[in-house]
Nucleic acid binder design. Sequence first.
RNA 1: GGGUCGAUAGCUCAAUGGUAGAGCAGCGUCCUUUUAAGUCGUUGGUUGAGGGUUCGAAUCCCUCUCGACCCA
Length: 489
Amino acid sequence: MSDILPDISHDQHAVRRQKLADLRATGVDPFRATFATTHFSGDAVKAHVEGQDNTVTVAVAGRLVVIRDMGKSQFVKILDQQGQIQLYVKKDVVGDDAYAGFKKLDLGDIIGAKGTLFKTKTGEITVRIESLVLLAKALRPLPEKWHGLSDPEQVYRQRYLDVIVNPESRTRLMLRPKIVSYIRRFLEDRKFIEVETPVLEATAGGAAARPFVTHHNTLGVDFYLRIATELRLKRMLVGGFDRVFEIGRIFRNEGVSRRHNPEFTMLEVYEAYSDYRGMMTLIKDLLTTLCRDVLGTMKIKHAQSGQEIDFGGEWREVRYKDLIKEATGDADWFARPKAEKIAKAEALGLGVNPAWEEFEITNEIFSKKIEPTLIQPTFVTHLPKELCPLAKITLDDPTTIDVFELTIGGMEIAPAYSEQNDPDVQRSMFEQQAGEEKQSIDYDFLLALEHGMPPAGGMGVGIDRLCILLTGAESIRDVILFPQLRPGA
RNA sequence: GGGUCGAUAGCUCAAUGGUAGAGCAGCGUCCUUUUAAGUCGUUGGUUGAGGGUUCGAAUCCCUCUCGACCCA
């Protein structure tokens, strides 16, 4: 034995590595152990029979997150997918050797435990451990138990730690899969078919956004990562898939902010023989039943405005033009010459680029001055036709299109259209929008339209934004497991 | 891209030009129904990186990295 051992008691990583080495020296390799569970923590708690302690045996496994050592017995808690469950270890139940081994465990270790359920004198359902096994040694310590992890950078880069120690992150991030799963069931119940369309595309169409470019080596061509699934799904309408949807990852090579992540998830849904008004019913039914069945409430606190968003009431429906007239206090706004529009926009405190088209000036007022004030669910209808080339022109107003944008909490949640299915109108809309850049037009889509696309309603739903809204999150990063960050130093 | 703010022990935070501290975690002790368990003791720092000012820098200045918020 060496008489001078280095003091590593301050270095938790070194202490834990030493414990692992000691275990291995006795022939125990925690990374080779196996354990068969019978219950998740929540199910185990439910399995307890009131008034009948120590009759039900369970085998549970998870990460040690609490240790309360009382000498010859300990209360500890493990965390699994369903949450925490308390375990009680007594020296005279498990035996001296096992108890000594148990004392060497660290917070963060992953263990399996078998025992019987009982209720403590403070009323907590607990497993009285009969045997246990170390299933994985944690060589790094967990963040602090009370304050959790609050450094935003570490929360995002090491999300696995965030969801271990921050229960509110865990709840929020578990709510998202429930929401997505509910949407799938809702649509499938209404005979919508979920399809998968390419992420890699020769032409990035269906939206106005800068795409990511990548390269296929053997084909020797560049591909774009899709910026929308719209044009693919409409091809399937042509093909007779009358109700289709896709919940897919979309990529847009633009800024990163509280509301934007370069990759995000969008639901796009198309229904033949429907139109934008049909989509209105669909989204209202979806969101109200989603609130009722998943959140258990129709009212959600909106952090930014302090208001309570009520999904259960009447949803306002208002024309885009009326909102503009109201915000500018000018009933003749759309007849004003461009110079007057610019002056008025600047008077409202907006920066206006003189090179902008008139509809862009108007839309700046909409997105900066109007949209953020639309907290309660609002269908903004009949947008100017320049804003989307893929929708049908309104019959009694050739300057607008048959669309709505559902806005909630000041965010655009779901745009929907009566889909343009006239191949000739569609072609001229594309050409008008593309200007000189004709190569960006999806001519293959126009060919599909010439084969005949049924009249249809279509809608896109930003899943991330919906989750921000429904979970009361402040940032898109709070509803994405691993938000995009600059590669770490 | 611009502005503001931030980075100190494993984690959460103090220390405003003069000896870098606390709580939790860790290490050692006591405790067989605890609930942020309690108890006694105790270790732990290249103050994000680099440069500068100063007798002296976590603190002031410059550059860089990463992050947050606001703006474009």
